[in-house]
Computed example of a mutant assay.
Amino acid sequence: MKLAVVVLALAMTGCATVADIEHTLPTMSVISGKNPQEYAECFVARIADSRKPPQIEPHREGLRVIVPQKFASSEPTAIVDIEKRSAGGSSIKLFESGGNNPLRPKDIQHAVNACISGE
């Protein structure tokens, strides 16, 4: 039964592109005292056990982390935009494919939260 729920959840999310994901509403919007590079390093380390390595690229005044799906090697499932704040630190926005799906894995959200203050 649990396997059927997982398969159904995966089918509901489908294959999304970076453009599709970035045009959704953010599922989280937070601020950190870390600069974009420090925050990205923390985030990547936090999801290393549950995901393949994400793609990191420059984006506006900071970095964009493109997170792959858990089961498909190259399909994106989330985008974390980390922008430098003029007052110091970073502004972080998380965009997720299937962000309204309650059955989606929470490892990305947990990593975003854990890296805010430097836990």
Rank of each mutant, 00 (worst) to 15 (best):
L3C: 01
L3I: 10
A4M: 09
A4E: 11
V5P: 03
V5K: 13
A9N: 13
A11S: 15
M12V: 15
T13L: 07
A16C: 13
A16S: 14
D20L: 00
I21C: 01
E22C: 00
E22S: 03
H23E: 03
H23Y: 03
T24P: 07
T24Q: 13
L25N: 14
P26H: 10
P26N: 08
P26K: 12
P26D: 08
T27H: 03
S29G: 11
S29L: 12
S29Q: 15
S32I: 08
Q37S: 09
E38Q: 05
A40V: 15
F43L: 06
V44E: 02
V44C: 02
V44Q: 04
A45I: 04
A45G: 06
I47H: 02
S50R: 02
K52C: 00
P53L: 01
P53I: 04
P54Q: 04
I56D: 00
H59A: 13
H59Q: 12
H59K: 13
R60I: 05
G62H: 11
L63D: 06
I66L: 06
Q69G: 05
Q69T: 09
K70T: 14
F71P: 03
F71W: 14
S73Q: 13
S73E: 14
S73M: 11
T77G: 10
T77Q: 12
I79L: 11
D81T: 15
D81A: 12
D81I: 11
I82F: 05
E83G: 09
E83W: 09
K84Y: 07
S86H: 12
A87Q: 15
G89F: 12
G89K: 14
I92N: 08
I92E: 07
I92A: 08
K93Q: 10
L94I: 07
F95P: 01
F95Y: 15
S97G: 07
N101H: 13
N101P: 13
P102G: 02
L103E: 07
L103A: 12
P105S: 14
K106L: 05
I108V: 09
Q109H: 12
Q109L: 07
H110P: 00
A111I: 11
A111H: 09
A111V: 10
V112F: 05
N113I: 13
N113R: 15
I116G: 00
G118K: 05
E119F: 14
E119V: 14
